[in-house]
Amino acid sequence: MVNKIDFLKYSERGEVVITAGIDVGSTATKAVIFDGTIRSMAIIPTGWNPKEAGRNVFLEALNEASLQEQDISMIVGTGYGRVSLAFIDRKVTEITCHAKGARFLFPQTRTVIDIGGQDSKVIAVGEDGSVVDFIMNDKCAAGTGRFLQVMTGILDITLDELGQMASGSKPVSINSMCTVFAESEIIGLLAQEVTKEAIASGIVQTIANKMLSLTSRVPCLEEITFSGGVANNPEICAVLSSAFGAKFNIAHQPQIVGALGAAILGYEKL
């Protein structure tokens, strides 16, 4: 898979135009340096200070590409922390950025499914690549990375282990979508000596069900590109993909799709 913008852009001084996209999410902060193709990328935890995380991830990505701040023609910020970035030239929502990034990596994308730390979303993309509709689950943690984080906390395992445990196990049914209620439910299941594997499998199934219910409100055409940190987990991807009855496109680094989209939007704007 080689993805490039066909033409290179040159500045007034005859140098190649380079842009940056910074995506400050609730859990991770991502940066992409772009010049028609991805020059470099960086991912760091957001922590308690989104402003500093945004600055640091930008410097890290610059360093990776052996560039200086003045080499960048435009910086576009996205993610919930975009408002805290003073040094950006433009801010764009993660909806537009994810669609842009996903289309760049997978040009046939018509639907983007993104599971982030504090929200999950389904974005319908038109034939021309523009956003035509979207739906967000953004008022509670159901079906988000945070849900998984809390559940892995109770089981005392990592997200990677959750995926491994879930694969091949028969899922126990977890009825609560609500993170707090699901937590109580799992504690109850553990008390009944239900295996960790069955619970892990049930948790992954819950996420798939929640995403499926979101997609019932927007057109969900193929190809489907899955982005966000949760897409790093191959077992969870497999469960979701089979629940949707469709093959998912998953980027090598699914977390950077938003930052990539931001950088491309900056590039196109110049």
Partner: peptide, 10 residues
Amino acid sequence: KVRIEAFLEM
């Protein structure tokens, strides 16, 4: 804000 901004961008 995210939803409304995204709608306006759309």
